[in-house]
Design a protein around this nucleic acid. Structure first.
Lengths: 233, 233, 233, 233
DNA sequence: AATGAATGAGATTTCATTCAT
DNA sequence: AATGAATGAAATCTCATTCAT
């Protein structure tokens, strides 16, 4: 919030990026005003427009930039050889580490997709598909080698990504667990999920599902509550 | 001076609720204007205030109402007795069914927490904690009985909820899978995850983790990209 | 500038129209701010948007409305029968009277065409063409009957309209001349112009043009002045 | 730190003048932004200030410069002796030629007077009065010699100038008519106008005016149209 | 002579909300 | 229960202008 006289160029740019990430992560893109952003950086609102053409472009720059970083980093980290388990472990460790290192960016890349205009959204979604495909390929590989036993690799891909990406919704640095700890725990859960069902099947436990359903099927009841105001006044 | 005349009371109320859910789920609370909402319903902006005191209250009503429904339904569906596996299966089936039945409400309850004012947020978070605790208790129970082998039940709780809640970000009715299908697939993954590590441990496979780390630890590189404007123009 | 509490509806609308006409005529569309307009009317800026969707639409409404009025009035005033001279006289009288009665609107319709967006411009230009055609037809008629002697009726149409429309650039009510007086003077000039050249030709005076050119042809010299700043400091 | 390096001084100056003329003629002074101007020229906004002190001064320079040119050229072209007809012919030929040669400048000098600040306006208006006086003097001279028959030389002055100046609102180089052609046509019309009424009077045709008025006087009806919004939506 | 980054004011437009009818 | 007109604040974005480099 320090106000520095004169031109600063790249320093200002980085300050805007940082402040923007934090504000968007906290309040959301739509709820962040450029007034807030400028105040946070310590410049006038109009000066922001030396760094982007409009608010939408700012968001897109943040997301696109992060996606590019993410892909580059993932490619550098991923094993192209080795067992599927080794590769999945590697993927998970990377993903956890990345989420812990850049929780705001990761969060925004999930939560603000809906704030992107159609063209920008298309560009980002394409990159995301790419990312998902990399995980999907590992799972397929593992199924082929018999390492993994998954009923539906597409669902598993989405489930694993949701599980891992959830981290950035609650992770706070300095918490109970270190990055290492998180990596181990999540790797454990992901591997268990992937090796999955056959272990149970092998032990003949699929029936475990049956009894619960036998009791009575779960039902989602219709809305019963009166109206918007019910129970509020 | 009513134009088409015809006060419709409850019909209007339900129309507002529905339109609001859809608009918030699509654009987000902050990005939804009451002008849009009124237009969607086919009334004037001012008339909305016959149904809520202000925009924030409208959001809170939606979220709170849904949470009450959810809890009531969960309590009705949950087994208080039986094996942990049976109970977890039951929980998962319920959760999946609920997400499939009311994807918008569920999504909003996750994504718009940050739009709630402190007091309202506190109320909702308390309910959510309650929900998490119900899952947590099942996991703890399973660990006590030896059915589940989890390194960290708190993490597992969060991971499972993230995994299941992710459904509402991509689920579209009429897709490839039926509710039943989804329930089976996700129950399989959740159970595998919960039974988890020991299966691997039992087979002496924990080492599977080691080699990958042995190769070289994953690293999250620092941001290298030029700046906001880099590669955009 | 009086501030009236409560809603006024049509009163406000007319006040906006009047204030808008005056401001645009004085400062031009681009230079008129909606802040000024609202202040003049005595309402808040935002309230203006109960009366138009945006500034451009406001301008278009003013111009289009005036054009419609003008055409209706012209059609009511014009003679479809009678000599070309009688009809041209009639046209001129009407045009003068109209310009004297509504100088601001007329002026804006000429001067702010460039401020219209393409679609709006096209609509207005079409109406204007129509107006010009009505005069053109009278001139053609007069040429056919031998009443008028014009080298080029298209040029004459433009010249007469420019001449008459010029009135609204200097006319101030309460000046030296009454509407009647203006009508007589301009009718005289327009008729003289239209009867035109043959009078001169009849008297064999076309040569009058020659001597002047004989002396030496007029030349438009190239810009000689140094630069923007020359002779200013 | 100059990018393409190469200070171009006078070249830049002329480029700014040209771009400014074109932008102001097209969009108007108020609607032209210095950003646009700089972009058109291919320099940064700040660099413009090496060529003028502010936007207003830029406009004044353009207008004043043109007026000085115009006067110098007119004085060089005008006949101080000869018949009034010869002098009026000469004036008209000059005026037409000048408008055809510099339509943008001429147009701006008429249309952007209102954008001048009081002092600047006063200076320009004085020059313009001078110009009008030169035409007025010719007309007076012709009336004295009996060459012209005008009811009101002041009105005639304004009418002729409006007629001639109208040219720059529609003239496009390469159109149907050459400069020569335009000069002849407009000279014809101006002379006819100036010789004017007496020809008709001589033929006893003043009555031509009467019948039309006899039928019924033209009336300018009051505004009837609903309002701003009428017939638009 | 030109740049690039800044300013501070002001532009148009939208917002949630109020209230007499 | 609904309207239509209003408010006052705040939104995004553009403006002319300055100035160190």
């Amino acid at each position: 919030m320090a106000r520095i006289a004169g031109s600063s160029g790249p320093r200002t740019e980085e300050a805007i990026r940082r402040a923007g990430l934090s504000l968007i992560a906290t309040h959301g893109y739509a709820a962040m005003s450029l007034r807030q952003l400028a105040a946070e950086v310590g410049i006038q609102q109009g000066s922001l427009y030396n760094y982007f053409r409009n608010k939408q472009e700012f968001l897109f720059d943040l997301i696109r930039g992060h996606m590019l970083d993410l892909h580059a980093a993932l490619d550098a980290a991923l094993l192209s050889e080795g067992s599927a388990e080794a590769r999945l472990t590697r993927f998970t460790e990377f993903h956890v580490a990345y989420h812990v290192a850049r929780p705001q960016e990761v969060f925004i890349c999930y939560s603000e997709l809906r704030s992107l205009e159609p063209d920008n959204l298309a560009a980002v979604v394409a990159m995301r598909r790419d990312y998902e495909r990399k995980l999907g390929e590992i799972l397929d590989h593992g199924r082929a080698t018999g390492e993994f036993h998954l009923a539906d690799t597409r669902m598993a891909t989405l489930a694993i990504l949701a599980m891992l990406s959830g981290i950035c919704t609650w992770y706070k640095p300095g918490g109970r667990l270190t990055t290492d700890g998180l990596q181990q725990i999540f790797t454990g859960m992901v591997l268990a999920l992937a090796r999955g069902e056959t272990q149970a099947l092998a032990r003949g436990e699929t029936q475990a599902l049956a009894p619960s359903e036998a009791v009575e099927p779960v039902a989602v009841p219709a809305r019963r509550r009166g109206g918007l105001r019910a129970g509020v006044g």
